[in-house]
């Protein structure tokens, strides 16, 4: 069976950067700040959801309440 060649970005004229080509650090700082803040916020949000849920579940168990209403 003949294998099709995989498309490479360079073939389409797209310049692909290698890490060694990053000269100017300042743009990198801005990019990392933007992506980092979004990633950190998403993880913190997920953790806060989990904490809220677990806290409520434990309290329901401890206080001896049987079931919740419709969710």
């Amino acid at each position: 069976m003949r294998r099709r060649s995989r498309w490479k970005p360079q073939e389409k004229g797209v310049k692909v950067m290698n890490t060694s080509e990053y000269g100017n650090i300042s743009w990198f700082f801005y990019v990392i700040a933007a992506y980092g803040s979004v990633a950190a916020s998403i993880i913190v949000f997920a953790i806060s959801c989990r904490r809220q849920y677990c806290k409520a579940q434990e309290a329901l168990k401890e206080e001896g309440f049987s079931a919740d209403k419709t969710w």
């Binding site: 959801c49 809220q52 409520a56 206080e63 919740d68 969710w71």
Partner: peptide
């Protein structure tokens, strides 16, 4: 995730 957590919290308050 948030919706389920809110439902759990409100269930506790209602109980």
């Amino acid at each position: 995730m948030r919706r389920t957590a809110i439902a759990a919290q409100e269930s506790l308050e209602a109980a």
